[in-house]
Structures are given as C-alpha cells and as structure tokens.
C-alpha cells in the first residue's frame, strides 16, 4: 500500500467517523468536537487532491470560524441542560428510510457512472491558479458573494440583537 492510499484512508476515516459521531452524540459540545475532527479529515483530503488553498481555507474558515460560532451559541443557550430529552424526533425511521433509499439509489447510479477522460492540472501553483480562475472567469459570483455576506451580517445582527 503506497503512502497516498494510506493517507487517503486515514483522512477518510477521520472525515466519515467524525461525521457519524457528530450526528449521533447526545451532547452538542461533543458533536461540535466530532464535527471538527470530520472537517479536519476533509481538509486532509483537499491536501491529497492538491488543493492547498482550500486546505488552508477549510481550516481557517470552517474550524476557525464556523465551529467557533457553533460553540459560542452552544455555550450561550446552555444546550446541555436538555441532555436527558429525546434525541431523535418521533418520525426518525421515516427520515432514516429516506436516507437509505436515496443512498442505495445514488450508490448504484454512481457505480455505473462514466466520467469524461481525466486532464492534468496546468503547471502553476495552486494558489495562483485559483486566484486566476476566481478573478477572471468567476468575477460575477465573487462580486455577488459580497452581497450574500452583507445579508448574512445584517440578518444575524438584526435577529440576534437584544430587543429594541
């Protein structure tokens, strides 16, 4: 087994294991920590895929930003006081069944999928490549995403601020 495969399986285990734990833990704090493990694993996969920029972005944005947000809210609303309550809602078998059916169908379709022939990456650094693509071909979404973030900021401030 070569080194890359080893890393792949290691990161996959982290990603999927963390994800499974995240959705099954009773405590929200534990779930958040499992989620962090999972996201780290995904970051590792990005590294294996030569996406260094995303690897950094994943760690800084997700683990630094989003998870912190989650933990902050969990502390604020003291979720763990509700630990004794039911963790799954009543119709969970229905949700699980939908997931399983979709999973089987998707797996079958994927197993028969044929991708177009592979191409090689241009021989420039990943960050330069991403930057070029982003600013040349994807200028519009780059501009629109500023609106998105503005809405998110205004919205979350509006909703979370104390009553006037």
């Amino acid at each position: 087994m070569n080194l890359e495969a080893l890393f792949f399986y290691a990161f996959t285990t982290l990603a999927l294991g963390g994800a499974t734990l995240a959705i099954t833990r009773r405590s929200a704090v534990h779930a958040a920590i499992s989620l962090m493990v999972s996201l780290l694993g995904v970051a590792g996969l990005y590294l294996l895929l030569n996406a260094e920029f995303l690897f950094v972005a994943q760690i800084i944005l997700y683990i630094g930003g989003i998870l912190l947000l989650f933990l902050f809210v969990i502390m604020l609303v003291n979720l763990d006081a509700g630990r004794g309550l039911r963790q799954f809602h009543q119709r969970w078998p229905l949700g699980a069944a939908v997931t399983v059916i979709a999973g089987v169908a998707f797996a079958i379709l994927w197993s028969r999928a044929v991708l177009p022939p592979a191409q090689t990456m241009p021989d420039v650094g990943n960050v330069e490549l991403v930057a070029d693509t982003l600013l040349q071909d994807y200028l519009v979404p780059f501009e629109v995403v500023s609106l998105l973030l503005l809405v998110a900021v205004v919205g979350s401030v509006l909703l979370a601020r104390k009553r006037a």
Binding site: A22, I23, R25, A28, A31, A32, F70, V73, I74, L79, G82, L85, R86, Q87, F88, H89, W92, L94, G95, A96, V98, T99, A102
Partner: peptide
Amino acid sequence: TAGLLTRRNIVI
C-alpha cells in the same frame, strides 16, 4: 442527510 432528518437538536 440522516442527521438532518432524524435529530431533534437544532444545533446538530
């Protein structure tokens, strides 16, 4: 998807 469809805790 499974987590979303079965859990009750909104943070999760």
